[in-house]
Design a protein around this nucleic acid. Structure first.
Lengths: 194, 194
DNA sequence: CGCGACGTTGATTTGCCTCAACGATTGTGG
DNA sequence: CCACAATCGTTGAGGCAAATCAACGTCGCG
């Protein structure tokens, strides 16, 4: 089933009774997002937390010059949400769309809050997931501050080899905070060195 | 008491029975860190989550050229920890020291974990705090990606006016990811414009 | 007092961007 | 099934934001 991946990732950290599991499954909203289709648009209020079952999503912001900047990718087993918008119920500054046809499970903020109340141990799972995401962000900030574009790209290749193959360079460049042209030149330099 | 600030910030989100409150207070380790004194050094394993009662801490990383890069400031009411090190029990890549004589409350990872088990509703409080910190990081990443140094400085001044007065420019420059010389020039430009 | 930390200013350099052009690939409508 | 557009990656010339390096004044403090 397409809920297997999600359930097994939860059961690594907490246990569900049969009843709790069924309740949890009942609040999941499956959906398919086609390539290039938007899941969230700037200005909308993000009402769902999204889990990727299959495929690849990206979130990005658009600056005042109209340039897109990738904030995050999400492939199988990863979560995607604009937490700022979700928590404060304010319009999102981010966009989310699909880089591939993508199979997702969504949980609405309301259902999630109710689930927290009825199954408080899920707070524990959320905290773990959030801590991991927090550390990932921390690492990224640290790298933006300390590393050159070349170093950031090398780190990206080491840490996410499965994304390097899968995601267009133009998107990776955007994620790294550089232009695709510069990424291309930088890759050439790295090849020459080897 | 010096635990008032911490308690009141918790009680905004969850309730404690008298017993729970006393238990919580019993795991707090008060400490004073003198200006320039280290609380955590690169290579050490971060064993404590720290709450600032009075004063100001900073966390920073040192790059391969020996340059310090400020990761975060923490004044009254803020938390400070290297979550990567704390959670995975691996050596920290960050340093934490005090910019002023600082009055803190520390909670060890072990005590914290036990507290989570005995008072599960504290998970809820942690999740809220973590979500807020997560959003702050998200905003910072977004700004590093989308904004120029000038824009980032202006945003910093708007959002943290109380820090602008209090923290040396050299530290703020480091936080913003620019050199102190450039921050100085940039400030001059902003003054001329006005 | 004298030293170290901080802020400022100027000259020069550099990492990365912009713009423009071009081939390769993919996808799509006629 | 072809034609044409759109997307992607690459390359080169020129430009700009921010870094580096060096010098100097100020302030607080042991």
């Amino acid at each position: 089933m397409n809920t297997d991946l999600l359930l097994s990732s939860i059961l690594k950290h907490i246990n569900f009774t049969e009843e709790e599991r069924d309740y949890f499954l009942s609040i999941l909203k499956p959906r398919i997002v086609r390539k290039r289709q938007y899941l969230l648009q700037e200005g909308d209020i993000n009402k769902y937390t999204t889990f990727v079952v299959q495929g690849c999503l990206r979130s990005f912001v658009v600056d005042k010059n109209g340039t897109e900047h990738v904030f995050q990718f999400a492939v199988e087993g990863w979560w995607m949400a604009d937490m700022a918008s979700l928590n404060t119920r304010t319009p999102s500054i981010m966009n989310v769309d699909a880089l591939e046809d993508t199979d997702i499970l969504m949980i609405s903020k309301e259902d999630m809050d109710e689930f927290y109340i009825k199954v408080p141990k899920y707070e524990h799972f959320s905290r773990i997931i959030l801590e991991n995401a927090f550390v990932a962000h921390q690492t990224r900030i640290m790298q933006n501050i300390c590393f050159s574009a070349t170093e950031r790209y090398q780190y990206f290749c080491e840490k996410y080899p499965f994304l390097v193959q899968r995601i267009p360079q133009i998107q990776i460049a955007s994620y790294l905070g550089i232009t695709p042209e510069f990424l291309s030149k930088l890759r050439k330099q790295l090849l020459i060195k080897k």
